[in-house]
Simulated scan of single mutants.
Amino acid sequence: MAASDGSTISAAIDATELLRSTRSLSEQMVIIAGGGLLLGIGVGVVAAAGITYWLKNRRIERRLQ
């Protein structure tokens, strides 16, 4: 019985560690998702600015010719 008690305690410790890890990740998910959202918005703004600059530059070059 002593061996089964040890394995039961070990399994309980493993389950507790898994719960702690899962809880820690779930608390950080909002931060990670928010960071990804802000990064995506930033990349979109930079891409839109680059495309706008390129189109305006082409329009100005056509007028100058």
Rank of each mutant, 00 (worst) to 15 (best):
M1E: 11
M1I: 12
S4L: 08
D5C: 05
G6Y: 15
G6P: 11
S7A: 12
T8N: 13
I9V: 06
S10K: 09
A11C: 03
A12M: 00
D14L: 04
D14F: 00
D14H: 02
D14T: 02
A15D: 00
E17D: 04
E17T: 01
L18K: 10
L19M: 12
S21H: 01
S21L: 05
R23C: 07
S24D: 14
L25N: 04
L25C: 00
Q28I: 02
Q28P: 01
V30A: 15
I32Q: 04
I32F: 05
A33L: 10
G35K: 08
L37N: 13
L38Y: 11
L38A: 10
L38E: 09
L39F: 12
L39W: 09
G40I: 00
I41F: 02
I41L: 01
I41S: 06
V43Y: 07
V43W: 07
V43R: 11
G44Y: 02
V45P: 01
V46W: 12
V46S: 09
V46N: 08
A47S: 15
A47D: 14
A48G: 13
A49G: 03
A49M: 12
G50N: 14
G50F: 03
Y53H: 13
Y53A: 13
Y53G: 09
W54M: 14
L55A: 03
L55S: 04
K56W: 09
K56N: 11
K56R: 11
R58A: 08
R59S: 12
E61R: 12
E61L: 10
R62G: 00
R62V: 08
L64H: 15
L64R: 15
Q65V: 15
